[in-house]
Design a protein around this nucleic acid. Structure first.
Lengths: 116, 116
DNA sequence: TTTATTTATCGCCAATTTACGATAAACTCG
DNA sequence: CGAGTTTATCGTAAATTGGCGATAAATAAA
């Protein structure tokens, strides 16, 4: 008997975390996020100069990050300036550090003993 | 003139972070990781009972997490017990908290002013 | 209005992902 | 050996992703 009838129900946290993680699941996008985290904001053009990918490809990656809520674009004709979405960036920080148990990893001795 | 000749070169950190993030980019896999982080270890069978997805699908997700190095499986016939890969879990924790700037976010007033 | 600049979107294609059922593999027990 | 249990793998199909060039859209400047 298969148990595939009910659609899996995920908590909002799980969904949000997965959305953030998925958006971060490409080295170029990590690179972009690091850049925005380090040096405030930047233009699409700056990225196309420093990253050897087609302009359209970089635009796509920016779209992915924007749709995940991690960055936001301020339109400053004829350019567009991208920055981290600070609110969501903090949400992401909280969710990830929560998952990894940052700040209360001390007595966390988790062994994999065979007690089953 | 297109600048698409050189293949993009990513740092090991960026690649590793993206690999971890990608593996975490699905709510079921977040769920599994949370479970393993909370209650030590568990068997594939436990997951198939609590998650309404086909057994083969869950096995696939476990494979993704294992290949990313986030979990490991101990074969305990006829079952297989999965745990977090603690070493890599700590690596992931370090990389993510590093990216989010955990512990030194105090004077980080990053505004998005138009100085360009 | 035309031209130049910058960015987003479209169409396309190859590769990957996600899900499933069916089946194989490994091991235990009778 | 044969049957039962548990998990992984295979085959398949639909959807998504990642890359590109070409083109559209928006705006400034001439």
């Amino acid at each position: 008997m298969s148990r595939t009838l009910a659609k899996p129900a995920y908590s909002n946290e799980e969904k949000q975390l997965a959305t953030f993680a998925k958006a971060m699941g490409h080295p170029v996008r990590i690179q972009i996020l690091k850049l925005l985290n380090d040096q405030a904001c930047c233009y699409t053009g700056d990225l196309t100069e420093s990253i050897p990918l087609a302009q359209s490809t970089i635009s796509q990656h920016l779209k992915v990050l924007k749709e995940a809520g991690l960055i936001q674009g301020e339109i400053l004709p004829p350019k567009v300036k991208y920055c981290l979405n600070q609110d969501n960036w903090q949400v992401a920080r909280r969710l990830f550090t929560g998952l990894f148990g940052v700040a209360f990893i001390e007595g966390a001795s988790q062994t994999c003993n065979s007690d089953g």
